[in-house]
Each structure stands twice: as C-alpha cells, then as structure tokens.
Nucleic acid binder design. Structure first.
Lengths: 246, 246
DNA sequence: CGGGGACTTGATACTGTTCAATTTCCGTGG
DNA sequence: CCACGGAAATTGAACAGTATCAAGTCCCCG
C-alpha cells in the first residue's frame, strides 16, 4: 500500500500544477498570457489554506465568496436531501475547481469535504470577474471551465440513467485512472480516498453492491483490490464493460 | 386537450419573455441596464429561427458558434452512447438557454431536438463574450446562467442516484409544473411534449415503468392522465412522495 | 380511413437492495 | 509496540423494485 503510494510519482506537469500560482494559472492553460497578465492573476490568489481530513471547505447554504482550486489532496462534494439521504456529486483532485455551483444563487449548493489532508487556493470571485473581463482569453477559459463542469455532470447523468452496476464501476475506475494519468501518476495503481459508501452514493448504488462488484472484478482478474488500494490489471476489460451492448 | 391548451393563458411576464429582445434580455434580468446597453444586446441577437417538430437544432459534434434561447416551443437534449443507448439530459422551454455544454470543447456535446414546432434566438457566442466583458452585470448574470445549469444537473443527479421510480416521476411533474407557472401557464394542467420513452430516459427508467407509474398515480387520484394531457389533482401528495423517508 | 408509432397492461426474470453476521482495517491510547 | 475498539468492508440469503418480453389498444398523421 505504501509501495503503491510511492509508485504514484510526480511528473513535471503534475509538479507544475501543484505550485500555487500554477493552480490558478490552470485557468488560462490553453493560451500564452503576457507576464503582466500573469502577475495580475497571481495577485488575485489569496493565501493557501490547509484543510484537514474530514473537515468541510464550505457547507450548503454558506455565502459564496470565492472559488477554490485544489492544490493538493482530495475532496468530495455532496448534496444533502431533507430526509437525510446524501448524494455525492463529485470527487475533486489536484488542479480541479470547487464551488462553481454557488455562483447561481450566491450561496453554496453543496458541501465540500476533504477526504484527506488537503490544501486549496482561494480565488475571490468578484476579483476573478474583474480580471477576466480585462483579459479575454482568461474570460473564455473560465467559461470553458464552467461548461466542462456541465459536461461532466451530464456524462454522469448518462452513467446513472443508463448503465448497470458493473458498467458504472468500470466507468468510475477508468475516469479516476485517466485523471491520475493527467496528473502524472501511475495509470493502473492508485489509492481510493473515499469509502465504499461514497462511491455508492456517487454511482447510485448501495455500498454492498460496490463491494460485491469490486470482489467480482477481483475474482475475474480485471483488477486487484486490497481495501482502498486498486490495481487495474486489464484496462481493456473495463473498457469493454462501459461500451458493451445492452 | 384543446381545452387544456387554451387554459394555458399567457401572463404578461410570459408574453414579455416571448418577444425576441426580451428572450435575450432574460440574460440580464436581475439588474436594470442602461438603454444604450440594451441596444447593444439587441444588436447581438441574430434573426429568429423556426425549428420544426422533430428536427435538430444542433447535433453532437457540430461546431459551436452560438447559444440559443428558446423563444417558443419545447426541446430535448440528449447524449448518444456509442452502443446506441440514448440519454435525455434535459427538456428546455420558453426562455431557457441551449448549448452551454458546447463552450468547453467548441463543439456540441449533445443533440438538441425540437419536440414541437419552435423558435429560437441565436446568440453568437464570441459577440456575447465581447459584450459581456464590457457590461459587468451582464457578465455576472451569464455566469449565473452557467452555474444554474450545473445546479440543475446536480439535482438531477440526486434524483437519479437516490430516488425510486415513484419519487422520480413525482419530482419530474412538480418541476414541470413549477416551470409552467413561472411562465404564466396553469400550474396543474399541461400537455407533455415528450414521449414516455423520453421521460423514462431522462429519469433513468423504462417507458413501461413510466406508464405504469402514471397509471398508479391516476388510480390513486393524485393526477389524471389522458395520454399526454396531465392534470395534477393533489400536488401535496406529489410533494410528500419526493421528500418522504426511505 | 388506414397504418404505424405510442401507450397500456400482464406475466416473468433478474438486478440490486435490505438485513444480518462476520471479518478486516486503522487510529488511539495504554 | 501492542492491544483495543469502532468504523469500514465483505459476504450470504431473502426480498423488492424494475426490466424484459409479449400482447393488445389507442390515437395521431398522412
């Protein structure tokens, strides 16, 4: 387990996006900005905030002031239904943005909980709007970030609406794998930061079903599971599951 | 049925948002704009486009050029999985915006299909970004629109992830009712523009289950159903369904 | 008026849930 | 460092909710 964690070596890209300025600069990745513009951006970032495991970054109903870029660590966002049911709406890792749902009502629509000790950069939203209206490429990229969140949610809708338990879990693992790779970690070995219950809530199934499905994949040699440590043995098999007929 | 349709009388508000300029002005609803700014906005709107029933406004993969505001009519958006499965991701009616998911990749991520003869206003996106960077209140409101779409998708996630068939359909009917009211139509009588299959896809269930659940609600006197004509008899009963324990 | 898609309804099969009993893991304090 | 205790995970068996398959009806459009 410790061995697996060590195998998640940083790549240069991952290292870059881990430094404070660059987490925000991720907002303007697709284009080269002038150095004066970059300075303006960096001025916008508040100090880094440590968030320890299990604590919330914000809660549903909190007044919206800033977006947060995950610098290190791992978060989940979840809605709380009045009758107590919880729905996990997403998991956020290094370089991803939190809080975009709050813009619409000026108050947060969900809770954001750190699943391990983490650090975030605070991006005061008013300032971001001001700066971005002066830098068209930044504005455009920010719109892309918002839009990407919409697309992400919609592919999750597809998953919840038309896939079976096996397919959902396969898609989930492949998605995690892809995101780890983008950050320079190993594509086939990682540690889950969330519980089976979190996964189940996210994927619309019960924790027992998650556990059973993991066990089945394990028995079939598609992955090996040891608690939260996952090793993907046959990525193609997972791929087949997500796109197989009926 | 014709009678029900007639009972959906326009209110002043609905009438306003149906006129071309105002559909776009909906973008800047929360604040008063100067008349010069309103002129600038109105110049931005392309001509209105009629979209006849069954045709697509855009398809997945189409190059992204503009957002569309629904002026009259009714649309669905749907993702197509490679194996043929279709997932309806939303239904859009008068005054709602289409195409926000396309910003992220510059190409549309889903199909938009007119469910009845409709009209849309085209809002060229580049122009919108330019204008909105000059008018802070417009920029902010546009961000709210994007964010609202995220929130909308996330409450649908909750629905798909943690509700049973009955609860889903109840939530769906209440949501439609709410949106009709906002547009000045009757809150308890309306015509569904989509098929049972569309509803099922949207709510993550099979068309037979949709039909059966409608029949059960009908038998219990909660609603009356005649094909696509719905009359909500006991809104409270629907409310109880959506928020009842386990 | 005819044809075909949309809808309803029934019988059956199956996936995933629920309830319950263990086992494993991991943080905590002795 | 080890032992303890509680949370997390695994596994089984019975059950519930939906899906599937199939037959028949309705209704809308041409």
């Amino acid at each position: 387990m410790d061995a697996i964690q060590r195998s998640n070596v940083f790549s240069l890209q991952a290292f870059r996006s881990a430094c404070s300025e660059c987490t925000v600069r991720e907002l303007c990745l697709p284009v080269g900005l002038k150095s004066t513009e970059i300075k303006e951006l960096d001025r916008l970032i508040d100090t880094r905030h440590p968030i320890s495991k299990g604590t919330t970054l914000y809660r549903s109903g909190d007044r919206f002031r800033a977006l947060y870029a995950v610098r290190t660590g791992f978060f989940k966002t979840c809605l709380l239904h009045e009758d107590g049911r919880e729905q996990v709406t997403g998991f956020q890792m290094m370089g991803e943005l939190l809080g975009m749902d709050a813009i619409s009502t000026d108050s947060h629509a969900c809770d954001a909980v750190a699943l391990e000790d983490s650090e975030v950069c605070e991006i005061p939203f008013e300032a971001l709007e001001q700066v971005s209206s002066k830098i068209p490429t930044l504005q455009h990229h920010f719109h892309r970030m918002l839009s990407r969140e919409i697309v992400r949610d919609q592919s999750l809708l597809m998953l919840l609406g038309s896939m079976r338990a096996e397919e959902r879990l396969a898609a989930f693992l492949l998605n995690l794998s892809k995101r780890f790779v983008e950050r320079g970690f190993a594509k086939d070995e990682f540690i889950l930061r969330m519980t089976r219950e979190d996964i189940g809530s996210y994927l619309g199934m019960k924790l027992e079903t998650v556990s059973r499905t993991f066990s089945r994949f394990n028995a079939e040699g598609i992955i090996s599971v040891h608690g939260k440590a996952i090793h993907i043995q046959q990525p193609d098999a997972l791929n087949d599951l997500t796109s197989r007929h009926s």
